[in-house]
Design a protein around this nucleic acid. Structure first.
Lengths: 354, 354
DNA sequence: ACAGTAAATTAGAACGTTTTATTGGTCGCC
DNA sequence: GGCGACCAATAAAACGTTCTAATTTACTGT
């Protein structure tokens, strides 16, 4: 005899969910009174309030959020859309975001689109369909045209994370890339590095552009100007960073330090060094924006600028829910841009040159 | 002047969502006919069907899933509950699961509870509240008592992943741990290892127990019986595995190979070896269940038994949706247990002993 | 041509809430 | 003591669907 499924009576003769009507009957009041008691939406005398609460406990009533959503026209569900949930950044974000949201009584949808802008737009549409009250997203696409499509597709208050989309009507939470660049530059200069290479991501990607631009000034403040020849632009893929590393390290005068703009590039550099039998920090120093997860048991552990992902998630959740709870009023306010600082964590991949 | 928010007219004078009623009016038919057209729930003549479809396109109608859910008493949302979404296993699962579900028109809630059973039960309750139609979960708790609490709390068809919960009324998708153990044992024996250590997780954790038990027989088939002294039971934490490694490698006759039962233990062993200045595979061979993500740019890349996470996710999604779509009938069927094979991927952390 | 039946269409109830408008009751005030 | 003014409580409508039961239309067989 097979095990019996406990929920087999879910819609049969078994216990059925208690409704607000049952509570009203049990308490001997109207459903309006019950609703008013639950939501404090109208004055209820103390005696009735007590009766109602007792009845709620007695019948084990829990409000049906679907019915409430239908009536109210909004839900307590927000969607998180990321390019790749299996990337450590997105995974950490999802984790913190979910906790922040559930603390406030919201559930979180998740969509992971593989970095494909078309799929991302589909994800947004699906979340609209499922009546997400708000969206938090790390956008997959770039550029002004994509921003327009985003704004057209999104129908609810939204917070954009990581990337700054110019002029779009969204709140943003992003890394303070300029500050981070200064920290990195200072660290390398203090160690005595002068020939510093930078491997950047796609041109037009606000994160990569801001970080690269942020490095330029402080590095040029040093005794000699930044060496343009050591800057590798538009290397968004890991294999490109690998190739670039091989090129850089084959030069007559190789750089003494490499700055990677993102984890993808960092991985590429590590592969590139390995392919040449080189190693940080012995042969070259390596420092990475966003390298938190290269510290686990990595050898060497990479000195990097680590974002405070829980703080980002909490800030985004707060911004979003602030707008949601404010109702129509909250939507009128102009979009906000919040920059959160990263911290430079010195690990083992940098040392004095020479 | 601040940027204007495109959605500021969301509930004001702006465009309002078209309802099925609008479609009916536009097509000159009843709402029943429109509904029948959309759902194929009743025969509709070709001519009316055409009129209705035209009207739907004209007014830009999209069904309101909240209203539908209310009426139907079920939703097209399923919840995924994992101990820690930032763990690679869970992240990969979430990614594949979300894709599998969205292909079938379902949205996915995500909850990550930090491995705390109490929070997990709360997550389940919240998903119940939000009317999740089904649940997929990697349970945080262990043991029969916890299984009972799970069964009491869960109100919808559910699939348990990874861990096998005895006698509980849930479908399960799990790794074929016995097969995996045989593969690992064979690999090590073929290389010539005889003194093989095993570092296992919590006793009572079905995954750990099955894997350890699975190793026993094939290792004892070899010329000498398995060395009980080299088996470290109940080492669920990373620091315990670290300590165990130090102990093992300090023995007069240290093992020539270490098998780790899970990624946590693997990390611990790597730390332990590093702390002693040892390295795999030079000083000891290392092989891990579940080590996929130690291959990225790891040095050495760890030979491991890799689960096919997309296959697991797809199987679970299919099982769950199968039950959901079958309605009441689907709930009567006895729970299924599906074991999926892992593949042994030979990387660089094992070699012949001596 | 007419009853009888099958097929196509529709009106209306129901799902579980929130909210608007209304009732009934208590009080103060002249 | 009667009249409006407030307060607590309620009945009923509304949200956007689906589905049951009733109605209309079309068609078949004699």
């Amino acid at each position: 005899m097979p095990a019996r499924l406990f929920y087999e009576n879910g819609d049969g003769a078994g216990r059925t969910m208690a409704t607000i009507k049952d509570v009203a009957k049990a308490a001997g009041v109207s459903v309006t009174t019950v609703s008013a008691t639950i939501n404090d939406s109208a004055p209820v005398s103390a005696s009735l309030r007590a009766r109602v609460n007792a009845a709620i406990a007695a019948v084990g009533y829990v409000p049906n959020p679907v019915a409430r959503n239908l009536r109210l026209g909004r839900s307590r569900q927000v969607g998180l859309i990321v390019p790749d949930i299996s990337a450590p950044y997105a995974a950490g974000l999802a984790r913190s975001m979910q906790m922040a949201l559930s603390d406030k009584g919201y559930a979180m949808f998740l969509a992971s689109n593989g970095g494909d802008p078309a799929r991302e737009l589909a994800d947004i549409a699906r979340m609209n369909d499922h009546q997400a009250a708000g969206l938090v997203m790390v956008p997959a696409g770039l550029g002004a045209r994509y921003a327009v499509r985003l704004a057209e597709t999104i129908e609810c208050p939204s917070v954009i994370i990581d990337r700054v989309i110019e002029g779009a009507p969204f709140d943003c939470v992003a890394d303070d890339n300029a500050l981070g660049a200064r920290l990195i530059a200072r660290h390398l200069l203090q160690l005595g590095h002068r020939d510093i290479a930078v491997i950047a991501g796609r041109t037009g990607d606000s994160v990569s552009d801001e970080r690269l631009e942020g490095l330029r000034a402080p590095l040029s403040d040093a005794e000699r100007p930044i060496l343009e020849a050591l800057i590798c632009r538009d290397h968004p893929r890991e294999d490109q960073a690998l190739r670039a590393t091989q090129d850089l390290m084959s030069r007559r005068e190789p750089p003494t330090a490499i700055v990677t703009i993102d984890t993808v590039q960092t991985r590429g550099v590590l592969q590139g060094l390995k392919s040449m039998g080189l190693k940080a920090p012995d042969d070259v120093s390596l420092i990475s924006f966003d390298g938190l997860h290269f510290s686990a048991g990595f050898d060497p552990e990479i000195t990097s600028l680590d974002q405070d992902i829980p703080a980002i998630a909490e800030a985004a959740a707060e911004m979003l829910i602030g707008r949601l709870e404010a109702g129509a009023a909250g939507r009128e306010k102009p979009p906000r841009l919040l920059r959160l600082p990263s911290r430079l964590i010195v690990r083992a991949s940098c040392r004095r040159p020479g």
